[in-house]
Nucleic acid binder design. Structure first.
Ligand SMILES: [Zn+2]
Ligand SMILES: [Zn+2]
Ligand SMILES: [Zn+2]
Ligand SMILES: [Zn+2]
Lengths: 143, 143
DNA sequence: GCAAACCCTGTAGCTACTATAAGGTCAAGC
DNA sequence: GCTTGACCTTATAGTAGCTACAGGGTTTGC
């Protein structure tokens, strides 16, 4: 099949497929006499593997490693697989924690502007300006 | 003061300060006869304003707008300020939701590999491979 | 007079794509 | 045989927000 059909079947754009090939995530397929890429079933599965990992937020470098384990002796222990997943879980977890703190801070800032008023009286702008001169702010210094 | 001291006082690297100047977030300061940037107190406050907003995750484009409200007639309503903060809150909120889903999916995948074993028997690799051929996976298709 | 610690500009790198530009190929219809 | 449109190709630049050079000039102290 041509790249367009692979794209349609996987829901991944042709440009992204070519990008994965350049990045060494997908093996270069055979070419037709006119230079068109010709994909077979294994390519589709490899791409599906990549997309599945991406949907879990895994970085491309880790997906490269994960895919590489297929070329390793099957009798090896799988601890490096686990390590990659654990790493990703902890990355995601710490991002969540950071964003939750952020949300609270933003809401505390937002609470400074309730009823409609002017720029001169806006509690949000005032808070931001005061914080810039070193004063305590509603978002970061709230108890 | 020179850029290095501004950097030290704000905890923002010199290169980032120059970057903010290029991006139009900080006004270009006066220069010494040898071309060194000379900063005054207002620059320090402006930079602190930017860094404070950045610590709330605001994108630079929004910070530019927020800073621009100081040049606007003070009698204008502040609804566009609120809109920027509300937008940021909803961005952060939807990121949190997406990451929480991701964390659950990753943990379901991780649970496929409990006791130490070989690559050939690893439930994680098996799940990923099966999903690539269209089968249901622990991470996405769990009820 | 020299070395260390500053500063300058300009450019390239990071992630994971996305979007052009400029051109070649192929099948259908007239 | 010729045109039209839908494909495909490569190469290059852009996105966000920095960060890290390279290759040079300046200032300060000894
Ligand atoms: Zn207000
Ligand atoms: Zn604050
Ligand atoms: Zn395992
Ligand atoms: Zn899955």
């Amino acid at each position: 099949m041509q790249i367009g059909e692979l794209a349609k079947r996987t829901g991944c754009e042709s440009e992204t497929i070519r990008y994965y090939e350049r990045e060494g995530l997908l093996p270069a397929p055979a070419r037709s006499s006119s230079g068109y890429r010709r994909y077979e079933q294994p390519h589709l599965e490899q791409l599906a593997f990549i997309l599945h990992c991406r949907s879990l937020g895994m970085p491309l470098a880790d997906i490269r490693l994960l895919a590489g384990f297929h070329q390793q002796p099957a009798a090896e222990p799988c601890d490096r697989v686990n390590a990659l997943i654990d790493q990703q879980i902890s990355r995601v977890h710490s991002q969540i924690e950071a964003l939750q703190k952020l949300e609270i801070q933003l809401q505390q800032l937002r609470a400074r502007c309730e009823s409609p008023h002017t720029l001169a009286d806006c509690g949000i702008l005032k808070t931001l300006d005061d914080a810039a001169t070193g004063e305590a702010c509603a978002c970061h210094d709230a108890s």
